[in-house]
Structures are given as structure tokens and as C-alpha cells.
Design a protein around this nucleic acid. Structure first.
Lengths: 135, 135
DNA sequence: TAACTAATTGCAATACTGTTGCACTAGCTT
DNA sequence: AAGCTAGTGCAACAGTATTGCAATTAGTTA
């Protein structure tokens, strides 16, 4: 498990046990998951601790967040070389059936032509439909 | 103001005074606005009434909603011929400076190529940046 | 017009997610 | 060991969304 410690250290995050645990959950899920879902993975971990862990991870570009419209923000691991810049933006997919949110890292967010004088800084693109499992 | 009454009736919504008021606010703003913002336009109107009014409007495709990631869902008027189907999807723009959310009805949501067996039903595409006024 | 019915509204309470203050703890440094 | 700093847990709170229920209004019928 030194592997994970290295990942955290590479991002300048001290690898505490809590952080390793949260990381592992995100890794295992392979999807964008909510704070609540992470909380459910543990027995006695405080919500605020997870909350702050996620904030830390996000600040260091270890994870990114998506607002898929379900009311809860979801989090997913970034790629190793991610800096959460425009190039790293990708489409997310919310399954209307199972409610799971997928990261489509290979599908970049298309940049539409905006009206004059509107600048593009970032974007949140969530596609909704039925996933391959629920189909 | 018979104009507005007709619009509501056309959508099968009984034009009560509250509903006309809420409609007027949405019309006036010409942007996507939150329940809270609508509430601020009145002195003594209950939040839940506005809430239910919006739900009614939305069910009848008179308005559509956007989740722009600010924490509050925002609502905006639909075009007359809107049925909130795929064709009616358009890009929304959140200004990072003034916090206002714009409907870009002339900018359709691009449909990306999804992995096999994932179906497209709808989408929420919010672009964030600086609007022409704040520029 | 009076009575009746159904839809709408207002009030109050609650749920859910996110967020913060504060005290305690663990781990590192001197 | 003493001191320092970051991290954690607890508890409380904030903001938005949502619901139950009673009061009101509007529309309909006799």
C-alpha cells in the first residue's frame, strides 16, 4: 500500500490513516461518489473529517468534484497528471436508474461558441441517461 | 397583462395572481434565478408557495431549471414552443464574478459520443467564466 | 345567493447537505 | 520530555429544499 502513500505525497498531502482510507474508497468505487457514500463505507468516522479530507484532496488536485444535480456533490480521483485545468475537463454521466455517476475521462467537455465577450473559465457537463449496466 | 394569462392557460396552468407575479419576475429578470431571488422580489409571499409554483411551471414546461453549482437551483422561462426535450437543451452560463446565470438559448448543448451502451436522455451543461458586463 | 368542492396558499416544522468553532489528540521537532 | 503543528471528532449551525396541515380562495352547482 506504499503506492497510495506515494500518490498523496506526490501531491503534497501528508498520508494520514484517514486520508489513506478515504483514498482507498474513492479508488475502489471508480466512480464519482458523494460524501455520504464515503461515510457509509466506515463505521465510526466523522463526516467533517471526511469533508475536510475531500477539501484537501481537491485543493491538491488529487480529486475533482461534480455537481450532478442530485443534490449532493460527488468526488472522483483525478488522473496522475491532472491539474484540473481546462484540458482535464471531461464529461460526467449520471444514470437516471441507479443514480451512479461515471467519469468519462476519455470524453472531453466540448467548448461551445459563446456570445461575444463571455469568457470560458471552466464547465460542468453532466449527461443523464441509462448506464450500460442498467440498460 | 392578458398576455401572461394566455401563456399560462396555454400550458394548462390556472393563472392565479401568485402565478402571474412569479411569471412576471422570471420574465423581467431574463436570466435563470433562484427561489431565493424570487422571494426577495416580494414582501410577504411564502417560500413554499413560490416553490410549488415553480414546480407546477416546470411540470408544464413553462420554465426549466439549471443547477449551476452555486447550491441553489435556478429557474428560467422556456420558449413558447419548448417541451424541454433534447432539442430544447441549451447551454447555461454562470458568471464567476456577479454570480448571475444566463440562458444561452441559441447555443445548443453539444452531444458528445458516449461509451457503448450508455444512452443520452438529457444533460446539464453549465459554462463558467466572466460575463460581458463584468468583463 | 348559499352551499359545496377542489385547488391554492401560508405557516410551521423538518430533512438533507454542507460548513465551522472548539477542544482533544497524535505525531514530529527540539 | 516539552512544545508545536496538523489532523480529527464532536457538536452546533447555515442554507436550500420539501412536506403536512389548516386556512383561504375560486369555481361550480343547486
Amino acid at each position: 500500500m506504499k503506492e497510495i502513500e506515494k500518490k498523496l505525497q506526490f501531491r503534497n498531502i501528508k498520508p494520514t490513516s484517514m486520508r489513506l482510507l478515504v483514498y482507498k474508497v474513492l479508488k475502489k468505487k471508480q466512480k464519482a461518489i458523494s460524501l455520504y457514500e464515503i461515510e457509509q463505507e466506515f463505521d465510526n468516522v466523522d463526516r467533517s473529517t471526511i469533508f475536510r479530507t475531500l477539501k484537501t484532496f481537491q485543493t491538491k488536485y488529487l480529486i475533482h468534484s461534480v455537481d450532478d444535480g442530485t443534490g449532493a456533490v460527488k468526488y472522483a480521483l483525478c488522473d496522475d497528471d491532472c491539474t484540473c485545468s481546462l484540458n482535464d475537463l471531461h464529461v460526467h454521466f449520471l444514470c437516471n436508474k441507479c443514480g451512479q455517476t461515471f467519469c468519462f475521462k476519455e470524453v472531453p467537455v466540448p467548448i461551445p461558441k459563446l456570445p461575444e465577450d463571455f469568457s470560458f473559465e471552466s464547465a460542468n457537463f453532466v449527461v443523464k441517461g441509462i448506464c450500460s449496466t442498467c440498460k
